[in-house]
Design a protein around this nucleic acid. Structure first.
Lengths: 335, 335
DNA sequence: TTGTAAGCGTTATCAT
DNA sequence: ATGATAACGCTTACAA
């Protein structure tokens, strides 16, 4: 910057103003400065600006880079943040990099606020982080939390699936569950919905991956009666189960209905066509950024929660409950 | 930092050294300083350090956040970089954020080197960027380029698919192609392989998405003879086509074989089981980071190219060429 | 083992 | 419209 100033014969201050598009400098110097800057290949040093300014205009986003639902959210977050004049710094969680490490990195980068996707950190830790920079937790239920929350009413989403299945005549509905806060939330939504319908909740432990889903199949096939429907904790689990079931000769949805959760691009592929629940990442991103802005620029200090309504996406993996007789015959045949 | 120094009654310099684990300070002061730092919730300011140091230890990675192949690479890059003592900053390319903008952002963050995934920027631009910070282009062919390149021999990969199909007795093999440098590379690999076998290359324009793949189907179904095999430009395209074909009553691979490219997690799902070509993201990431290190810390100045051998992943979407008669009958039936 | 002081590239305040 | 100068928080000779 000093170089440019020297070359043009002005001061650093002028150059700085010109680069920040601030009224003051004359059009003539403006042009000259830009020209020389170009020639010298000058790039503003964000770190230095950051040091001088009180604000960094940086929003840190912790995400599991391999989770397509997270990357979808990140994509939207980047755009929303940009529109608000902020830049997103991604703190990736990987096999070898914990959530705590990701947060540490974001804090070192002097992010003004943190958006945490599916945080597994406990409330106390979140609170501590929040004291340094406003935290928005996305996608996870946080009872009695002191940080901002944006999430879908997962319990309700799962209940919608159960209702849908009951309407189709299903009564023998199993839940393939996941672990952690998110898994627990969905499982309890399932349980409540089943009880509300006077049905028996049946939870089998599964997980959030295709592998988990497909390894849940044998246990179900072993039963005397195949359940008439399985509500899976997410789309990937459902796809794994779907796959294993089809391999075993089970017709979905004729013999058994299967539902997912997330309404991921995968679920929408026509030859998977998974009945699922949409979490509306577009809207979650928007709300998360709004939350950040309210606390950063809007003066809000109390934590706020945004709980979005899930939306059912009916596709071809759910259908009327099978006649018991038929199902049993199918199973026999496939053995 | 000054606060800590004051509280403990030492100088900033000591505190700095302690935080960087530098020999010198006594164990006693060390402990005292850490304690007070904890109490004050102190976090080192990376930007300030960066300003003082000559080095940022930052590697910028430009990636399409929604592209699962890119995110897979990023995941590995993060780990490899960390192992080498570097931090990765992600410059996301989205619908509203161009590659040039992503690169600008990374440069503003004072990244010491740039890893560009599938860059569409022209050679001249890449060269200009390289003058500021060493550039590694990943996954794209760059004839006569002046920057480092890490890629798979895509032409050869596609040729392997063609060879495989020819071995299975196929002769009527169509290529569903993509645009851009990558699409062109794969198309020319296809053409050369076909000619080598004395077959007629037939290229139809498709694209890199499921949508593109499925919208390629009608044109193929319209033909008097269904091609016996289709080599798609990537897995997503293949899955779209696969889907549309199955919907049209075509049995894959009995009536028609389909191949993908990338060996993505999707291709590996057992009920898709797409024959594909692996680009080995793990290895590409490793090489990209090595390239960076050689130029940053190893003193290499000449550009280097690493061209990896693709690897065939045979699965269930390819099979022996169908008898013409059978195929025709199938098609009639499905109409 | 510890302290002092200069400097990194910017922005901001106050003059001119 | 432009310039001088003091921060910003850290690192690093060099000195004690």
């Amino acid at each position: 910057m000093q170089d440019i100033a020297d070359r043009v014969g002005v001061s650093k201050a002028l150059v700085s103003m010109i680069f920040r598009d601030i009224a003051g400098p004359s059009a003539a110097t403006r042009e000259k400065v830009m020209e020389v800057a170009d020639e010298l290949g000058y790039r503003p040093n964000r770190a230095a600006a950051l040091l001088s300014l009180r604000r960094t205009k940086l929003i840190g986003v912790m995400a599991e880079i391999r989770n397509s639902f997270h990357t979808e959210l990140v994509d939207f977050l980047v755009d929303d943040a940009e529109r608000a004049g902020y830049e997103v710094v991604l703190g990736p969680v990987t096999a070898t990099r914990t959530q705590a490490q990701a947060v540490d990195m974001l804090l070192e980068f002097q992010c003004e606020a943190l958006v945490l996707l599916g945080p597994q950190l406990d409330s106390a830790t979140l609170h501590t982080i929040d004291e340094r920079a406003p935290v928005v937790s996305v996608g996870r239920r946080l009872p009695g939390s002191t940080v901002d929350v944006v999430r879908t009413a997962d319990g309700r989403g799962v209940a919608m699936l159960v209702n849908h299945l009951v309407t189709l005549g299903h009564t023998d509905i199993v839940h393939a569950s996941g672990t952690g806060a998110i898994g627990a939330d969905r499982a309890s939504g399932y349980r409540r919905a089943m009880i509300r319908h006077g049905l028996d909740p049946q939870v089998v432990v599964s997980g959030f991956t295709e592998m988990a889903g497909s390894s849940t199949a044998p246990g179900l096939l072993e039963r005397d009666d195949l359940p008439s429907a399985v509500v899976c904790v997410n789309d990937r689990c459902a796809i794994g189960l779907l796959d294993a079931m089809q391999k075993a000769g089970i017709d979905v949805p004729a013999d058994m209905s299967i539902t997912g959760y997330d309404n991921s691009p995968l679920a929408q592929l026509t030859h998977i066509a998974l009945t699922s629940v949409s979490q509306d990442p577009r809207e979650q991103a928007r709300r998360a950024v709004s939350s950040v802005l309210e606390r950063l620029d809007g003066g809000r200090t109390r934590p706020a929660s945004v709980i979005l309504r899930p939306r059912l996406s009916l596709r071809s993996t759910t259908g009327p409950a099978a006649q018991r007789e038929k199902t049993r015959r199918r199973i026999e045949r496939s053995r």
